[in-house]
Design a protein around this nucleic acid. Structure first.
Length: 597
RNA sequence: GGUUCCGUAGCUCAGUUGGAUAGAGCAACAGCCUUCUAAGCUGUGGGUCGCGCGUUCGAAUCGCGCCGGAAUCACCA
């Protein structure tokens, strides 16, 4: 049993014996002992003073004696003001290490066959332009949250919702039709998503010219934007698409397929995949039917122009349109349909949406509308809202060309890893393929860690120069720690030193060794916590603390040159455990760790 | 204007359900490779935790009010 839990239990039994009054779990406040004091675990005694009727010091003293007498692994205690600092035996941590070292996935909860199923939607791209930095944060968060929830013992269904229809999609299509001259990704030598994105930009530019032209002819901006020939044409194209026009539909299909191929490549490099992909073009009709059904049942009302609305004023929100006057659907219509499809397909106990915080209001509305429609599972929707990614100069603006493209960014990170590696004279013994794999691991590791170490709710600044930094609190620093440990094991093997099965329990641990054991001891709890709060940054910061502590140990003490074979064996095991936790913790972030770097 | 979120070192970020003298990294400066990988380690400087009031044994953390920033309040997605 974990020592913290044991202390809690003993106190709940012991305090009534000592003071004749019961205690509740919340009054037992255990925390890690601060660095500047001796001890491992601290009990805050202030909440217990009412029960003891004594001073903080006297209460701490009473409880210290009681715990020392009743728990074998508490070998000493020091009372300082209102804090009872307890020293945990080295034996306890050695036993812990022996117990845990044989598992490759130490810290992960056992997979329970009747565990709840959590469905997570993330990525959710539009098919009119390539993925950018904002999508990267979304993808990394979604992927990592899935890994973490799974590690916490739940079943996870990864899903993506592709926004593949609408006026914005038609814009690229129209531009290609007009000016593309039959260009294809192959003929252009370009990824499909980039090619389609180029036509989207082209449309925008041409349209602006027309608008400017109309304004110079004396029209208002508003009027010009509505009557520009290209705008009229693209609207006509959308109508054709919705009515199933064969030619438009074929073009849509072709260009979307180009985009999917491009996305596929980006996802593959990022290490991301899905169990199920939904397409808005498939689900919007389901939502429309549901809305009409709700209208029939009097849940919604029809405006005199024919549009359908929901009134959420009693819920503190406003009125919201659910279907346009012409009967076509809006964004939320599609989400209503998608949610139902998902429920039917997978029966999830929870549905998590990884979507930026600019859509907080939208998800509030979605939940309320689904609730109004009588879906009992509406309250199981959770919007994992994350902050915007900004550049040091401010927001990314596609107009000003400051959008950071996902593919370019990955290329840049890997390139930097390569240059850095050559500068440092690393990896010379590896084959070209192994080298490239390692550069990719490091470059992407830097990128992913840089983004995931920040609390999702916060807006973050993406500083390109800083993100490719490989020192300090970075992915490569952690990867390096792993590579160092693996290097020790290679050396051990050369010298015929084997990793022992068990460490003997009578070894006296130094401070660094004990610290590393204490940190790894917390890993299971960190995973649970991180899963419950949908927060990968907890894992990232935890792994960093571990790597930092290990590097100090590595610097201060020798492993293979340690003369005492029992101590050497223990240090090897400790190193092995550290490597395993780094490996699986980074794995939860979607980051691979190399054996050499 | 209403609602929601954010505000911690020059910069980027940590800081469990309120706990001891608020921590890392980057940048700057000064050290450490004959020894398991120096992408490492050590040290120095750097703070009115946006401001004020309140709650209490105790507040960066909770409440209220300001100030600053962001998002949103579309028959856009």
């Amino acid at each position: 049993m974990k020592i913290e839990k044991l202390i809690s239990q003993v106190l709940i039994k012991g305090i009534p014996e000592l003071y004749g009054q019961p205690v509740s779990q919340e009054m037992i406040q255990l925390q890690k002992t601060n660095k500047e004091f001796e001890g491992d675990i601290t009990l805050v005694v202030f909440p217990l003073l009412k029960i003891s009727g004594k001073s903080p010091e006297a209460t701490g003293q009473d409880l210290g004696v009681y715990l020392e007498n009743n728990i074998e692994d508490i070998i000493k205690f020091i009372v300082y003001k209102g804090f009872l600092n307890m020293v945990v035996s080295d034996r306890y941590y050695l036993e812990f290490m022996n117990r845990v070292c044989r598992y490759n996935e130490y810290g992960f909860s056992a997979k329970d066959t009747d565990a709840e199923t959590v469905m997570v939607e993330f990525s959710s791209p539009n098919t009119n332009k390539p993925l950018h930095l904002g999508h990267i944060r979304n993808n990394l968060l979604g992927n990592s949250v899935c890994n973490i929830i799974k590690a916490a013992g739940k079943k996870v269904v990864r899903t993506n919702l592709v926004n593949d229809r609408g006026i914005h999609i038609c814009k690229s299509m129209l531009a290609w039709q007009k000016w593309g001259n039959g260009e294809t990704p192959e003929s252009a030598g370009k990824k499909g998503d980039h090619l389609v994105g180029d036509y989207y930009v082209m449309f925008d530019q041409q349209c602006k010219l027309q608008v400017a032209d109309l304004i110079s002819q004396g029209k208002s901006r508003d009027e010009a934007e509505k009557t520009a020939p290209l705008m009229l044409e693209v609207q006509e194209m959308l109508r054709k698409w919705e009515s199933g026009d064969a030619e438009v539909y074929a073009l849509w299909k072709t260009m979307n397929d180009w985009v999917y191929e491009g996305f596929e490549e980006t996802y593959r490099r990022l290490g991301i995949g899905f169990d199920k992909i939904y397409y808005e073009s498939d689900t919007y009709l389901v939502g429309r039917d549901t809305v009409l059904e709700g209208l029939k049942n009097g849940l919604f009302y029809r405006h005199k122009d024919g549009s359908v609305w929901v009134d959420l004023k009693t819920e503190g929100l406003d009125e919201k349109v659910l279907l346009r006057a012409d009967g076509t659907s809006v964004y939320i219509t599609q989400d209503i349909g998608t949610a139902q499809e998902r429920k039917n397909d997978f029966h999830p106990d929870r549905m998590v949406y990884v979507v930026g915080n600019e859509q907080n209001y939208h998800f509030k509305v979605l939940r309320l509308v689904l609730d109004k429609l009588g879906f009992s599972w509406a309250k199981t929707l959770y919007h994992l809202s994350y902050g915007m990614v900004e550049l040091p100069e401010g927001k990314m603006k596609s107009r000003e060309g400051t959008v950071v493209d996902a593919d370019d960014l990955m290329d840049e990170m890997i390139k930097t890893a390569r240059e850095m590696s050559y500068d440092l004279g690393k990896l010379e013994k590896l084959s070209p393929e192994e080298k490239e794999d390692t550069f990719t691991m490091i470059g992407l590791g830097a990128l992913k860690y840089y983004i995931l170490k920040v609390d999702p709710v916060k807006n973050m600044t993406f500083n390109p120069r800083e993100s490719i930094d490989f020192d300090g609190n970075t992915g490569p620093f952690i990867q390096y720690t792993h590579a160092r440990i693996k290097s020790v094991f290679r050396k051990a093997e050369e010298n015929n030193i084997k990793l022992p099965e068990q460490a003997i329990l009578t070894i006296a641990l130094n401070e660094k060794e004990k610290n590393i054991m204490k940190i790894t001891h917390d890993f299971p709890e960190i995973i649970i916590n991180s899963a419950e709060t949908y927060n990968p940054s907890l894992i990232a910061n935890f792994i960093y603390d571990l790597a930092k502590e290990y590097n100090q140990f590595y610097h201060d003490f020798s492993i293979l040159k340690e003369p005492d074979p029992e101590v050497r064996a223990m240090r090897l095991m400790l190193s092995d455990l550290t490597a395993k936790v780094i490996n699986s913790g980074m794995g939860l972030l979607g980051i691979q760790v190399p054996d050499r770097m």
